[in-house]
Design a protein around this nucleic acid. Structure first.
Lengths: 248, 248
DNA sequence: CTTTCGCCTTGACGCAGATCAAATTCGGGA
DNA sequence: TCCCGAATTTGATCTGCGTCAAGGCGAAAG
């Protein structure tokens, strides 16, 4: 019921989930009904491919739960992740019938899909969906550019620290946990996926994680659960100058 | 007069330059007059900085002529180019008052600027400007992702070949030259700028260009003018599987 | 309990590209 | 024309990360 919320609401409207639509000025019942009619859900298991690059793709979608990745692959198998899709992220491109990237479910995944053609038709008449989409795309572009700096100029250690910081930040946002104390979260990605994200090999990822552990910047329980005793010290390793909103 | 054309017209409308607006269904005289009122031109010399990251930026703009770059810089001076702005490209982000990147003129540059606030106000009422902007942003996002693959997974030689291919493609488009024959164009970037684009050092850029020359894939007159005797052979060095529309 | 199969870690070694250090060339002004 | 500073090339060397090759560990199945 609340599942196209991320698409319909911008930052201004964050406190108005769709179930309160009767009281939200930006929620037009007509549009919601239209969206309601053209939407359908699809579920995927961890590891499953949603679409292959080059496949026909007749829908656009919003991630409801779980994590997916966008990756590009070269002929010889070299792979680069170019997008990490978290709940509320948008997938697909209005006006394009063919997927440009492989979309893969990293965890169990639910997506809320809208048939592309009717969605595009509706967009013509509903400027604020359009506007919201522009806003989201600009955010993605900023993220992509941050990522380019990471890929082009950061060391392996900085790359790992940056990724951990991103995942930690996501976890903080998710749980709305108090800032400042030690931070514990699960890595949603395998070492290989981290390597594809960072433009490294599995071995280098593993070695750098071990190094951060050795240096006391993180602790590991098993292979996935990370504890960050002092987020500031980790952030110092990222090479970024800001704290990325982690320290308040 | 024809200078906000790239902003107002999508691909569908390519054959309708603004000077024919009387006959173009998508050209609304009202909007054009509005844009006309809020626009102004700014010129920059090669090397001049347009805005620094973090500066207040009260306009959005469209590149009229010349080339500009978007770059990010780390505290210790490492730099990564994250955008290459060619004529018709859009600069600035509606809804954001502060620049996220350094914008620098690489050649002499003319930009057509629109004051941000009135531009945003107008966007609310003119969905097709909004839509065009979304389209352009999605194209930029695709380009950024292509670039991420280059930065994360390509070798130095592949990076150089890819950049030359991009510049060659641009030149072909610019002059609408016949495909197939030898190709000659000027590098708009210094070796340092190429290095910042590719995530390499100046020395590696220079060495790889020398290697391509030695292997007969390119010829150089002076340091800037490149001749590509056979574009196919160059494209084979990029690591990409498609010909990128260069060979017809 | 043991086996098996992914996933992860660790070690040894090699190499692509970075770094440091000179030349050399180019382009613009006197 | 020559001169000068900046851009580029080239060489020598170094090093961070990739590659190759064993193991280790933990979860699920037998």
């Amino acid at each position: 019921m609340a599942l196209h919320e991320p698409l319909l609401h911008g930052k201004d409207c964050g406190d108005c989930p769709i179930r309160h639509r009767a009281v939200c000025a930006r929620c037009d019942t007509d549009e919601l009904d239209q969206l309601e009619k053209m939407k359908f859900y699809r579920s995927f298991q961890a590891g499953q491919t949603v679409v292959w690059s080059g496949d026909r793709m007749d829908f656009v979608a919003s991630v409801v739960s779980g994590i997916a990745t966008l990756t590009q692959t070269m002929e010889d198998g070299r792979r680069q992740m170019v997008g990490l899709l978290l709940p509320s992220d948008f997938v697909g491109r209005p006006g394009r019938a063919v997927a440009s990237y492989d979309v893969t479910a990293v965890s169990d995944l639910v997506m809320c899909c809208f048939r592309r053609k009717p969605f595009e038709d509706m967009m013509l008449g509903t400027p604020h969906v359009n506007q919201r989409l522009l806003e989201m795309t600009l955010d993605e572009l900023d993220a992509a550019r941050e990522w380019m700096l990471l890929l082009g100029r950061k060391t392996a250690r900085e790359k790992i620290a940056s990724l951990l910081a991103i995942l930690a930040r996501r976890d903080v946002a998710l749980r709305q946990r108090a800032r400042g104390g030690p931070l514990r979260f699960d890595l949603p990605l395998t070492r290989e996926e981290m390597a594809d994200y960072l433009g490294l090999t599995i071995e280098t990822v593993s070695r750098q994680i071990s190094a951060l552990k050795r240096d006391g910047l993180i602790q590991l329980e098993g292979t996935r659960q990370v504890t960050v005793p002092d987020i500031r010290r980790l952030l110092e390793e990222t090479g970024d100058d800001s704290d990325g909103g982690m320290v308040g």
